[in-house]
């Protein structure tokens, strides 16, 4: 188990280093200068030069990369070019919107997908199964931003139960949760649809296995067999998908954040890219890469937890 852990950790660190270099290069190579963006159409060349110096953009790229990297290791992400506030603080603020939103959406999609997948697998071919499968087809097909707009139309504009968007902050947790409800639903449903399908097919695969027949033969009912032996074995593909989904929800909520004008990480990156706030783009993308890699690491550990063979093999 320890070697397994160590191996995983080494590959984690290497991935992060490679990612940081790629991100830095890609962002810095993109055309556009933050200083001329800030100063607009009437600025004089000497003013732009003065701002570039003030922002530290006249330092060679190589030196900037190492400053950024070493800063990050000590938790200092530098100063945003446009906002002129510490990037770490900005990311932290946004993180407290994106992270709870991703968790809520993930919880919601799992809560829907597990029972729905179990139900459909247990009643394979029945009208119920067809119904669930039809619904998931629809869920996969509907783009989440359209679904989000429909939610706004019904629950914010017509029924006035929720506000159309925005985030009041965590001072009042109930209000904050309420503000995240519609976005979380919009994010969760398509994910739930995918997860349900994966859950169902994984269970069906397992149901055909010999050990399941043995379980039935020793007297367990179909339901008991699924609960005791099927579920655990079906979890590996499901965990993989959940891991992927969490990364997607954290980084990919950008459109939903636009629709509900939530001050989350996705919107921060979007704004930073248009304003060429390079250091913010680099840092947020790096953080997201970090999150994805860590989540995958956690999923790897979870595999090991549900499948003892993985531990033994390494």
């Amino acid at each position: 188990m320890l070697t397994y852990l160590l191996k995983r950790l080494t590959s984690l660190v290497i991935s992060l280093l490679v990612a940081s270099l790629v991100i830095f290069l890609v962002v810095e190579v993109a055309p556009g200068d933050p200083a001329s963006f800030m100063l607009g159409l009437n600025a004089q060349p000497d003013t732009v030069a003065a701002l570039r110096a003030e922002l530290g953009l006249d330092v060679p790229k190589f030196a900037r990369y190492f400053a950024w990297l070493s800063g990050m290791i000590s938790g200092d992400f530098g100063m945003s070019y446009t906002y002129r506030t510490p990037v770490a603080q900005m990311i932290a603020d946004r993180f407290w919107v994106s992270m709870p939103l991703a968790l809520m959406a993930l919880a919601l999609s799992t809560l829907i997908a597990f029972p729905a997948g179990l139900f459909a697998a247990a009643r394979r071919g029945s009208a119920g199964d067809m119904g669930v499968m039809g619904a998931t087809q629809l869920g996969v097909a509907i783009p989440n931003f359209w679904f989000a707009m429909m939610l706004v139309l019904v629950f914010a504009i017509n029924l006035r139960w929720f506000s159309a968007g925005g985030f009041p902050g965590w001072d009042d947790p109930l209000l904050a949760l309420k503000a995240l409800t519609l976005p979380a639903i919009a994010l969760a449903l398509p994910q739930a649809a995918i997860l349900t399908r994966v859950m169902r097919s994984a269970l069906l695969d397992i149901l055909g296995e010999d050990f399941m027949r043995t379980a039935r033969a020793k007297g367990l009912s179909a339901r008991q067999a699924i609960w005791r032996h099927g579920l655990r074995n079906a979890l590996i593909p499901v965990l993989t998908i959940i891991g992927l989904q969490f990364s997607f929800l954290l980084a990919g909520a950008i459109i939903i954040e636009q629709v509900f004008f939530l001050p989350g990480l996705g919107r921060l990156v979007f704004q930073a890219i248009t304003q060429r706030d390079l250091i913010v783009v680099e840092s947020v993308v790096m953080l997201l890469v970090f999150a994805v890699i860590v989540v995958n690491f956690a999923v790897d550990l979870a595999y090991a937890a549900v499948d003892p063979r993985l531990r033994a093999r390494t």
Binding site: M149, R160, S163, A164, G165, G166, Q258, V259, F260, F261
Partner: peptide, 18 residues
């Protein structure tokens, strides 16, 4: 002052009287 960049979100925010 609130900042709502998406046009459809802008529409919704006014309609919902946010």
């Amino acid at each position: 002052f609130r900042f709502i960049s998406d046009p459809s979100a802008a529409f919704a925010s006014v309609m919902a009287e946010d």
